[in-house]
């Protein structure tokens, strides 16, 4: 640090819609999406606050408060978050609030820390906007787990060449008229065919980081509609906890739609 008269560190004032603020926010959202271990990708809704502080000896610190909205892409979906559709508000949206800190040095941003909390919109808000819209169900509800198991069993039964196992349940809604459970869940491709799985399901292990995502609707009388898309090889830092019993469960962080993530880099 050069010796000289004391210079106070004064913050620089920039607007939330300043291109520099937007650049910092875009880098933060990209980082958040690529480092989440569960749930769905988020899109930036607004920059709530920004503070820019000088850093000694060089550079600047950017402190941002961001409002995010859940998209329809699960983290296993390789589609960039910019190309993912933001959930409509009537779909009981989950919003994220993140406090992020970035360092700007020589014109380039790097992440220093993030603290994010996500929570579903309040039931009162949804009912006010759309009285007939279904609300999110708790993910460990017996009806939800049964629906996922039935849907996955049906998919695996119809596709003998591949055997999928459950990674995590993403969303679930219990509907009435007709009584049904609508579920979304992430899956992983295993090293088994359907026939192999009938003989030794516990030996069917995840193969080559190939994930997929399924949507299903299960009516109480047993009518099941399920569709899954399987993606190509990816490098995701998901931790596998193989229990030896089906369904295989990988890194489920919670059974609600609320999550808190803190990380200092």
């Amino acid at each position: 640090i050069p010796v000289g008269p004391f210079q106070p560190l004064l913050s620089r004032v920039i607007d939330c819609d300043d291109p520099e603020s937007e650049e910092a926010a875009a880098i933060a959202v990209d980082y958040i999406n690529s480092h989440n271990l569960h749930g769905y990708k988020f899109a930036l809704n607004s920059i709530e606050k920004i503070k820019v502080l000088p850093r000694r000896p060089t550079g600047e610190l950017f402190l941002l408060e961001l409002d995010l909205l859940q998209t329809e892409c699960h983290i296993v979906n390789p589609l960039p978050a910019e190309n993912c559709t933001v959930r409509p508000i009537t779909d009981h949206v989950v919003e994220g609030e993140c406090d992020v800190k970035l360092l700007k040095l020589d014109g380039s941003f790097s992440m220093l820390s993030r603290k994010c909390h996500s929570k579903p919109d309040s039931a009162e808000d949804i009912i006010q906007i759309c009285p007939d819209c279904p609300l999110l169900a708790v993910l460990n509800d017996t009806r939800v787990i049964n629906a996922v198991n039935l849907a996955l069993a049906q998919y695996n039964g119809e596709h003998e060449d591949v055997y999928l196992r459950l990674v995590e349940i993403g969303r679930a809604q219990i509907l009435h008229l007709p009584d049904s459970v609508s579920v979304e869940f992430a899956v992983v491709v295993t090293n088994c065919s359907g026939k192999d799985a009938q003989e030794h399901v516990d030996g069917c292990l995840p193969e080559d980081q190939r994930f997929g995502f399924c949507k299903a609707s299960v009516l109480t009388e047993g009518n099941i509609t399920v569709s899954c898309e399987v993606y190509g090889h990816q490098t995701l830092c998901l931790k596998f906890s193989i229990t030896g019993v089906a369904p295989l469960v990988i890194a489920i962080a919670g059974v609600t739609h609320d999550h808190l993530t803190k990380e200092h880099l």
Partner: peptide, 25 residues
């Protein structure tokens, strides 16, 4: 002549929050 005192510097406040890209929750 009466000298007008210089106006005190006004601290600029950032225009925040920024625009809402999708909808207000």
């Amino acid at each position: 002549p009466v000298a007008t005192p210089p106006a005190a510097p006004v601290a600029k406040l950032p225009l925040c929050p920024g625009r809402i890209r999708h909808y207000q929750v």
